[in-house]
Simulated scan of single mutants.
Amino acid sequence: MELKTHEVAKELGMAPRTIRKWVQKYKIPCSKNDYGHYVYDQKAISLLETLKANSEVAGTLDDYETPLQSTEPSTINPPFEPKEQKMDLLYDRINRVERLLDQKADEVVSYQLLQQRKEIEELTKRIGELEEYIHTLQTPNVKKYEPPLIFDQPIKNKRRGMFRSIFGL
């Protein structure tokens, strides 16, 4: 039974473009039909399934050595590896995930620091404004008095002065 690219992609739950890239990159043996489309037999499908199982996420195969990669373009390594190699691959993946987590944590901390710095600057500005307002409230409003005019003085009772002058008090 031979399947076309879109059928294999649907069966594996992947994008057809990824299937075509893997066929070219890892030299998976498959034939082409009269229209130039890839046609996959059971062996090619099983190799693609192995590739998918060995990759954490589509697109990460560049970072890791997979069992199907080989130094010679015409040969394909068997899909089985010794346990030590599998453990090394697993340790490499764990280390990569830890590095990514550390990087993400650093980015989050940097973002939080920037946000806190911005908040502190806003609070500092607001405190300065409040200090100025308090200062204006505490300083007394001093009115400058102009010299009194003659008309502003109270009128003295002239009779009283007259009685004093008469009686000599």
Rank of each mutant, 00 (worst) to 15 (best):
1 M>T: 00
3 L>F: 10
4 K>R: 14
4 K>W: 13
4 K>P: 08
6 H>G: 05
6 H>M: 04
7 E>F: 03
8 V>I: 06
9 A>M: 01
10 K>L: 08
10 K>F: 03
10 K>G: 07
11 E>V: 02
11 E>G: 01
13 G>V: 08
13 G>L: 02
13 G>Q: 00
14 M>L: 14
15 A>D: 06
16 P>Q: 07
17 R>L: 06
19 I>N: 05
20 R>K: 03
21 K>E: 10
22 W>M: 00
22 W>G: 01
24 Q>H: 08
27 K>T: 11
31 S>R: 09
33 N>F: 01
33 N>T: 07
35 Y>F: 03
39 V>K: 01
41 D>F: 06
42 Q>T: 12
43 K>V: 07
44 A>Q: 04
45 I>T: 02
45 I>Y: 02
46 S>E: 12
46 S>Q: 14
49 E>P: 03
49 E>Q: 11
49 E>S: 13
51 L>E: 03
52 K>T: 15
52 K>D: 08
53 A>S: 05
53 A>Y: 03
53 A>C: 05
53 A>E: 11
55 S>R: 04
55 S>K: 02
55 S>Y: 11
56 E>R: 06
57 V>K: 14
57 V>D: 12
58 A>S: 15
58 A>W: 06
59 G>C: 04
59 G>L: 06
59 G>F: 08
63 D>K: 11
64 Y>I: 05
64 Y>P: 01
68 L>G: 00
68 L>H: 02
69 Q>F: 07
70 S>P: 05
71 T>N: 10
72 E>I: 13
72 E>G: 02
72 E>F: 09
73 P>N: 12
73 P>H: 10
74 S>M: 10
76 I>V: 13
77 N>Y: 10
78 P>E: 12
79 P>I: 08
80 F>C: 09
81 E>D: 02
82 P>T: 02
84 E>D: 05
85 Q>I: 07
85 Q>C: 05
87 M>R: 15
88 D>M: 11
88 D>G: 04
88 D>V: 08
89 L>K: 09
90 L>Y: 14
91 Y>R: 12
92 D>W: 05
93 R>E: 05
93 R>H: 01
97 V>A: 14
97 V>L: 14
97 V>R: 15
98 E>A: 09
100 L>Q: 04
101 L>G: 08
101 L>T: 08
103 Q>W: 07
104 K>W: 00
106 D>C: 14
106 D>F: 15
108 V>N: 02
108 V>T: 11
109 V>F: 11
109 V>G: 02
109 V>H: 15
111 Y>N: 12
111 Y>I: 14
112 Q>M: 13
113 L>C: 03
114 L>S: 11
117 R>L: 12
117 R>V: 04
120 I>K: 12
123 L>M: 14
124 T>N: 09
124 T>Y: 00
131 E>I: 09
132 E>L: 14
135 H>Q: 15
137 L>N: 07
137 L>C: 15
138 Q>M: 14
139 T>M: 00
139 T>R: 08
139 T>N: 04
140 P>S: 01
140 P>E: 05
142 V>P: 01
142 V>H: 09
143 K>T: 00
143 K>P: 03
145 Y>M: 15
147 P>I: 04
148 P>V: 09
150 I>T: 12
151 F>H: 13
154 P>Y: 06
156 K>S: 02
156 K>V: 13
161 G>P: 03
163 F>R: 09
163 F>K: 15
166 I>S: 07
166 I>K: 07
168 G>V: 10
168 G>A: 13
169 L>K: 08
